[in-house]
């Protein structure tokens, strides 16, 4: 479904990705783990088009999306929940959700998608008129995922959804990620929380200073000694 071939990405003179090759098949949960500054977020940004890959190609459903601007990538069915949630702080919760469905003009379709979001996140429904910025961290993460669901994506990319959240909320979020996957959404999950991510993932990649160090099935990586030492200590 999605394939990155030898992607190299630069920020000015700094090379953040040094030739990343990975693929995601339809229906999978694939996780990308690695320590701070490894290039996980950059990989997602290269896919969604927020930064342009300098070399290599990104193929999504047989289409080369390497050079697509982010608003076009979004239209082709890839939703990117960025690191730090990035809720629009001065828009209401409802408007944040509506932004997710920006490309949809059919009002009924929008309502349908919204009630779908409420099924997963009933709490959001009570907060529709609140300003996004006044929500708690956990609520914002749920809103960010809900907003991405409003895009009705085929591929959902999540950048550290567990960041800064209490263990019980992390638990809930991972549960919902699994449910979304069972409902047919393919997931590419970036996490620091390697143990939990590998538990729900079909496959995983370990990225280190811009290169893929290891790849394998989630259940194998959990047992891998290198992974255990570096990320599960």
């Amino acid at each position: 479904m999605l394939a990155l071939n030898n992607i190299e990405t630069f920020y000015g003179g700094i090379q953040a990705l040094k030739g990343i090759t990975l693929n995601v098949e339809k229906g999978e949960i694939v996780t990308l783990i690695g320590s701070n500054g490894a290039g996980k977020s950059t990989a997602l940004k290269s896919i969604s088009g927020l930064v342009k890959a300098a070399k290599g190609s990104i193929i999504y459903k047989n289409e080369d999306i390497t050079k697509k601007p982010p608003h076009d990538t979004a239209l082709s069915g890839i939703a990117h929940v960025p690191e730090g949630r990035r809720i629009f702080p001065k828009l209401s919760v409802k408007e944040n959700l509506l932004m997710g469905a920006f490309s949809v003009k059919d009002k009924r379709e929008i309502d349908e998608r919204m009630s779908k979001v409420f099924q997963y996140f009933p709490k959001i429904k009570e907060r529709l008129d609140q300003k996004g910025g006044t929500m708690s961290g956990g609520e914002q993460q749920m809103l960010a995922i809900g907003r991405a669901m409003m895009m009705k994506p085929e591929l959902l990319m999540l950048d550290e959804p567990s960041m800064g959240l209490a263990p019980i909320i992390v638990e809930q979020i991972f549960e919902i990620i699994k449910e979304l996957n069972q409902a047919g959404i393919t997931i590419l999950l970036v996490e620091q929380n390697a143990y939990q991510a590998l538990q729900i993932a079909d496959r995983g990649y370990v990225i280190q200073t811009g290169s893929i160090k290891l790849e394998g099935l989630g259940k194998d990586l959990i047992k891998n000694n290198e992974v255990r030492e570096a990320y599960l200590a």
Partner: peptide, 21 residues
């Protein structure tokens, strides 16, 4: 108008919502 406010607050994220900034 909503897209305009969204772009004002966070240009990158708005573009992820398929808004042509």
């Amino acid at each position: 108008g909503m897209a305009m406010r969204a772009v004002a607050q966070d240009r990158d994220t708005a573009s992820l919502m398929s808004v042509n900034v």
